[in-house]
């Protein structure tokens, strides 16, 4: 329990450093905006992170409630999942820099205390767990993007065609290969392509 008290005490300093580490891990062009931001202007990423770190830290420290953690992580990662400047590792790396922030905020004496070290190992494994959760969220978001990318438009148009009876579904039990035979002998769609406005 002693580590928890220590962390609770040094929370402000740890979060400050955590944020700092996160910002410094960004591509320089973005970091410039994150770092220099005086008010909430600039990149939503910076502010989202800023606002989510404390509750997230509290949750790691005290609760580790899966649902709560996801709810703090989701907004941070959801935005980054569509900001192509981040590689997947960059998108979730910030979780792990909490380890560094915690360690550098413990005094030497505290760092050598066996009891604390043991607790620290447990704490860090919780961070790993959160990191993995972050990765899950990131992947979920990316999958969603790709689903939208791959199917969204086509599906909608296709459904409309299908409903209009312009498309034949393959009847069960028939030999595959004869697909999507159009109803009329005339092609209904001009041969250029299938575009929606």
């Amino acid at each position: 329990m002693r580590l928890n008290d220590l962390l609770e005490q040094k929370k402000a300093a740890i979060i400050k450093e955590w944020f700092n580490l996160i910002v410094n891990s960004y591509p320089s062009d973005t970091a410039y905006f994150l770092k220099k931001q005086k008010d909430h202007f600039a990149n939503p990423v910076g502010t989202t992170i800023l606002h989510s770190l404390k509750p997230l830290f509290d949750e790691i420290l005290n609760g580790m409630d899966h649902k709560a953690i996801v709810s703090y992580l989701d907004p941070m990662i959801r935005i980054r999942a569509v900001q192509v400047m981040f590689s997947p590792s960059q998108a979730v790396a910030f979780i792990f820099s909490l380890k560094k922030a915690v360690r550098s905020n413990l005094k030497k004496r505290e760092n050598q205390d066996d009891h604390i070290i043991n607790e620290l190992i447990i704490f860090e494994s919780k961070i790993d767990e959160v990191g993995l959760m972050a990765f899950d969220i990131f992947m979920k978001c990316r999958e969603q993007v790709y689903k939208l990318k791959a199917n969204g438009e086509r599906n909608r148009v296709f459904r409309a065609f299908q409903r209009a009876g312009l498309v034949y579904e393959i009847p069960d039990g028939k030999r595959p290969g004869v697909m999507n035979v159009l109803k009329s002998s005339n092609t209904a769609v001009a041969p250029l392509d299938d575009r929606v406005d």
Partner: peptide
């Protein structure tokens, strides 16, 4: 106006 992102996140 000034764009600001608040806890939530809420714009």
């Amino acid at each position: 106006t000034k764009f600001a992102l608040n806890e939530g996140p809420k714009i």
